[in-house]
Amino acid sequence: MICIYLILSLSLNLLVGYTGLLSLCHAAFYGIGAYASTLLITKFGLNFFLALPAGVGITMILSLLVAYPSLRLKGDYFILTAFGFQIIVFSVLYNWVGLTRGPYGIPGIPKPSLLGFEFDSLPLFLLLSAVFALLVFFVLYRISASPFGRVLKAIREDELVASALGKNVANFKIWAFMIAGGIAAIAGSLYAGYVTYIDPTSFTLDESIFILAIILVGGSGNIRGPIVGTIFMIILPEALRFLGIPDTIAPNVRQMIYGALLVFLMFFRAQGIAGEYKFE
């Protein structure tokens, strides 16, 4: 799961950290990717490695639904729009029973296989997801260190000045959404192949908030922050197991520790552990 969350946080960082769009619908892209590739595998018999890019393509196209409003809306209004998109996607996944089986979810998703080789054990799946995470890291590293990434940062800093310098802000935002959505879809496809069962509750607003929390804790605006945040937020619950908290109250105590850490960070290091950009 750490590789899946790494992919999710790295992709969200392109929107939040680089472009300055506090997007609360990343789990929607994650879910669309998971459902798109799963349906292509289960209904059309496509191989995972074909269904994954197709799922990425579908998610990139659907990401335009939230990219376009973002061109006109800023700040709180954009956050509410993204929130609305998240709710709509969840509702569609939950209620379009004919396609998604709604709350029953889709069980029995085949494990990924390539040329007869099946990634059916945990170490093999870890290897597969690590390869994808590395690939995503490489892609995002190149993009963010390029003139494209520089323009995204400029848009984050001052959209009007960026446009006064001849930058087509709308185009850049659309690109950012499509790339971030497409990469989140990779995580969705991997998740479906990993757990072999998906239902809409894995792609809720809570999940979007969790991915955003990774960015806020680790830091945004550079490539290090999401990596630090993912390690921190995924490994922390495991580390907390060693505190010897009774099982009956452990989940609640862990949530409280999470919350307290977030409050602490916002007070003392608002840009996150390794971030360079602080949300105003």
Binding site: V139, R142, I143, S146, P147, F148, G149, V151, W175, I179
Partner: peptide, 11 residues
């Protein structure tokens, strides 16, 4: 009009 401002070219 910097070529690297196209994400595919940058990639």
């Amino acid at each position: 009009e910097q070529p690297g401002e196209n994400p595919l070219v940058s990639l």
